[in-house]
């Protein structure tokens, strides 16, 4: 598959030579740093609290705080793989070079997947390292992982969910074609919807929250969480996200005139 391999290599070169890619990565780093600061101040107030109060502290899982933002930033890189070309009209030359639409979208999805998985793993590990450094061997409930091995499923699933977000964002980009629209929708999906869910009646709150991308991480990992899905259910919802986004993106990308 020479043609596909060359297309992937070209998309990889494109993503590397886009300034926005590096800006979004910097956004991910800043978020992680901010998350570490918040965690640090939380631990300070924990240490000052009485033993009774300590038992009421929420779990200080850094992936809950930082990963939605990481999902947004890394997803944005995936969306920009397509929208940057429509916005600058360089989609024309791109399609002249690789006129097989599905093949081109496949190459973009491959790169989005690689970026999503790589960055997802990197930022999940950074968040985990934060937690280990700041929480040390403090007990539950504030420390989600008194044993570091307990964090492995969460890290893997967090990385997987970033990958999925990146693919979903790329599919969105293929549908809306505009950077502004794609990033707004992505932000609504991973950052705003979880807040919005809180305003629903409790039953619906849980039903909606359970299928939101950021909340799929604990459900996939099977860790302590308030949501409704089993690990298998969460895996099915995750797969549905990818399938729907890529199918809709492929249909839009191959049917419409460029």
């Amino acid at each position: 598959m020479n043609v596909f391999r060359d297309a992937v290599a070209a998309e990889w070169m494109k993503v590397r030579t886009l300034r926005s890619t590096w800006a979004f990565l910097a956004g991910g780093v800043a978020t992680t740093a901010l998350g570490a600061l918040i965690l640090f101040s939380l631990v300070q107030s924990y240490d000052a609290a009485t033993p009774a109060d300590r038992a009421n502290f929420e779990t200080a899982d850094p992936t809950v705080v930082t990963m939605p933002f990481v999902m947004f930033f890394i997803g944005a890189i995936g969306a920009m793989l397509i929208t940057s070309e429509y916005t600058t009209r360089s989609i024309g030359p791109a399609l002249l070079a690789v006129p097989q639409r599905r093949l081109l979208l496949g190459a973009k999805a491959t790169v989005a997947g690689l970026v999503g998985l790589g960055c997802g793993a990197l930022f999940a590990l950074l968040a985990f390292a934060d937690a280990r450094l700041v929480l040390g061997d403090r007990p539950k409930p504030i420390n989600p992982w008194p044993q570091w091995t307990g964090a492995i499923p969460t890290i893997l699933c967090a990385a997987l969910i970033v990958l999925v977000t990146c693919l979903v964002a790329m599919g969105l980009g293929a549908i809306v074609r505009s950077t502004a629209a794609a990033l707004t929708t992505l932000g609504a999906l991973v950052l705003v919807a979880p807040i919005f869910a809180h305003f629903l009646p409790t039953v619906w709150q849980l039903r909606l929250a359970s299928i939101l991308l950021p909340n799929l991480t604990p459900q996939l990992a099977g860790s302590d969480h308030p949501y409704l899905l089993s690990q298998g259910g969460a895996a099915a919802v995750t797969a549905a996200y990818v399938l729907i986004a890529l199918t809709a993106g492929a249909v839009s990308f191959s049917r419409r005139d460029a």
């Binding site: 297309a7 940057s84 070309e85």
Partner: peptide, 17 residues
Amino acid sequence: AHPGRSAFTHLACLARS
């Protein structure tokens, strides 16, 4: 062409594909 890329990288991306 993407205004943020150099002439070389713009062409190199097309060439690579």
